[in-house]
């Protein structure tokens, strides 16, 4: 399965590369590791999630700024040992509790490149900010019995990172960074489902 996924991802990039003519428009695909924060950590999952990815498309307005759109996907999962829960006034339920959450942010993003000299430097640090919405799918199971719900909520993101060209003449390179994602989730008494994200991958021109 993982080999098939890898082949598909490589095929996507080779296809995109073939269409690329200039380098003002870039696409990046990155692996994402997420550390839950706030209500997501306190009430739903305590562990970090290594099942995530980010797809960003950025258009360079000038050497200092770029704008674009970003898609993300993160899967959180945690199974808690059997425990007794007060499920009614005089009712006790003993069960293994499983929480499963998928967060899919779709954000309008902007970047600021403080060096602004992309032709001279191999490394281009940047600051980024984004705003948009997140689709949140939350499933909760007591034993094998559970339910799910989807919620669309406001999201914003702020972060920093760096693009590193493969070589001095390359228009593609590595990219990595850290950001904080806030996703509104005001359901069932929960607060926002926030996360600190560490991401790394590659970018290529796609115009």
């Amino acid at each position: 399965m993982k080999i098939k996924i890898s082949i598909l991802v490589c095929s996507i990039f080779l296809s995109i590369s073939a269409w690329s003519q200039q380098d003002r428009l870039h696409v990046s695909i990155q692996y994402n590791y997420a550390l839950p924060q706030g209500s997501l950590k306190n009430d739903v999952v305590e562990k970090g999630s290594g099942r995530g990815a980010v797809l960003d498309v950025q258009y360079k307005i000038n050497p200092l700024y770029s704008i674009g759109v970003g898609f993300g996907w993160q899967d959180y999962y945690e199974k808690f040992p059997r425990k007794e829960y007060q499920s009614g006034e005089n009712e006790i339920t003993s069960a293994v509790l499983t929480n499963s959450v998928q967060i899919i942010p779709v954000l309008a993003k902007g970047r600021f490149y403080p060096l602004g000299n992309e032709q001279k430097s191999m490394v281009q640090p940047y600051l980024s900010a984004g705003v948009g919405f997140s689709l949140i799918n939350f499933e909760q199971y007591l034993g094998q019995f559970g339910g799910s719900g989807n919620k669309l909520g406001f999201s914003w993101q702020g972060g920093a990172g760096a693009d590193i060209r493969f070589s001095k003449t390359s228009r593609a390179g590595f990219t990595a960074g850290v950001n904080y994602l806030n996703s509104s989730y005001k359901e069932f008494g929960f607060g926002n489902f926030n996360s600190i994200n560490i991401h790394a991958g590659i970018y290529i021109p796609m115009e």
Binding site: T93, A95, V96, T98, G143, Q144
Partner: peptide, 15 residues
Amino acid sequence: PLSDLTFDESRIYVT
């Protein structure tokens, strides 16, 4: 989530 449950973990007891 469901494929990761053993038979014992799948069961609930309500009183």
